[in-house]
Structure formats: C-alpha cells, structure tokens
Nucleic acid binder design. Structure first.
Lengths: 123, 123
DNA sequence: TAGGAACCTGACGTTGACGTCAGAGGTAGC
DNA sequence: GCTACCTCTGACGTCAACGTCAGGTTCCTA
C-alpha cells in the first residue's frame, strides 16, 4: 500500500509516517518513481511505534529497541534499557494513579459544594 | 523561604518556579528588594502542579482548576473539564498498561533468546 | 488524454516547559 | 566591610514530534 492508505489505516498522519522513516523507525520499499510502498506488517509496526511514543520513549530509544522487539533478540545492553523503560512505565502508571486519586478527591468535594449552591471563583 | 530553598525542597528548578509564577500558578510574596518569599504550603502546591503536568494537563487548564482544587469549589464548566481530564488520565493508564504488556512480552522473548546465546543485531 | 487526487522533497513554523546567559543588585557569615 | 553565593529581570535557545506551505511529479479514472 502507499503512504496515504497506511495513514488512514493507522490514523497516523502522512507527515508523521515520513518522520518515522527519517528517524529510521519505519522502512519502505520505493517504486521506480520514488513513491513509498508498505507491506501489511507496517500497520502493526506503526501502532507499536505509537505505543512506545505514548510511553514517553524517545525515537532514539525506540530505534535501539525496535530490531530486538521484532526479532525477539536483545543484547544485555538493550535488555537493560528495556528494563529501565519498563520501570519508568511502571512509575508513570503509579504517578497517574496518584493523580487520579487527587482528581477524584477534588471532584468529590467540588460536586458536593456545587450541590450546596456555592459558585466557583472565576479564574 | 526563598526560591532556592523551595527549589531544593521540591526538586523543581528555580527557572521552573518562576515559570509557574508567570503562568499564574504559583504566587509569592515579595520582599522590599523584590525577592520572592514562599510559605510552607508552596511545597505542596508545587508538587500538585507537577503532578498535574505529569498527567499531561496544560498550564492553562491547571490555572482554571487550581482555585477549585484549593477551595474545593467548582462551577459546572470546570467540573466538566475535571471529568474530562479524569477520563483522559484513565485512558493514559490503560494505554501504559498495554505498553507494559508489550514490553513484558518483548522482555520474555529477549531474555530467552539471550540465554540461548543469540546476539542482538547492532542498531 | 485530461485533470484532479495523491505523492515527492525540502524547508521553515509551532508548541510547551523549561535551559541558559548576561548584567546588575541583594544577603549572610566571618 | 569583604566575599561568596543567591536572586532579579529580560531575552534568546532548545528539543521532539510533528504541521504546513511551496513547487513540482506521479497515479488513476473517466
């Protein structure tokens, strides 16, 4: 498929896909005229990339770990990095759960006082 | 306390604290000479701000919700925003848990193949 | 074969949360 | 009062992950 189709299938913009290629994260065959062509696997790869980005992992780190992710093979160094990222993801989750508790306590109090008719001071 | 002490107590840079003030998130008394002075509550407030930032909430949104967070009082509009942020935080947590599963499966495979002596292809 | 949609390569713009530097003034211990 | 650090304002720099625009080429359908 061409880049537009990959874009609609993944929900990732064409510009972003070209950016992934720039960063070495996503390879593409080229037609004679230079247009990019992708296989079906590209869809999963793009989703994986997005997932890693969402975990706050930089493109440089993703670049390091991607071959290992796809081949299932990793050097001790990469293994250590993966473990480091794992624990950072765990910490992110814990922090967010903390934030959730904060938001919930705020919401509980706010709903109560709103029911009692007290308005919010303007920002 | 002065800004340096607040910085070391919270682990947030002096520059960031001044930035919070610029954004209206953190107020400070001023001495005759213009130096900032903070009360003890500032430590908690800074931590709260950091927590909200970590949840991907922008300074503009934090600015809107902070008075309500501190007073426990919110207008219906702010309430709706808070609920919106809450569900976005929930989604972030779910996504991260997904990522965690991915990383774990990668790690499981990688450890196995590393034990079997297969090296990682160089990045 | 025409023409509009999709694609190409640069290259500059954007956004948020700060980093960093300069030059000047404030503070505190000895 | 000296000195070493702390703080001030103002302003430009940074970084990542794209957005956007320009000017040109390619593809596909009628």
């Amino acid at each position: 498929m061409r880049i537009g189709e990959l874009s609609t299938k993944t929900g990732v913009s064409v510009r972003a896909l070209r950016y992934y290629e720039e960063q070495g994260l996503l390879a593409a065959e080229r037609s004679e005229s230079g247009q990019r062509h992708y296989g079906d696997k590209a869809v999963d790869r793009v989703r994986l990339i997005q997932q890693l980005y969402a975990a706050g992992i930089s493109s440089a780190s993703i670049l390091e770990m991607l071959p290992c992710v796809t081949t299932g093979v990793a050097s001790p160094q990469v293994l250590a990095k993966l473990r480091g990222h794992r624990s950072s993801v765990v910490k992110q989750i814990e922090d967010l759960q903390d934030t959730l508790r904060q938001l919930d306590s705020v919401l509980a109090g706010a709903v109560k006082s709103h029911e009692s008719g007290v308005p919010c001071p303007p920002a």
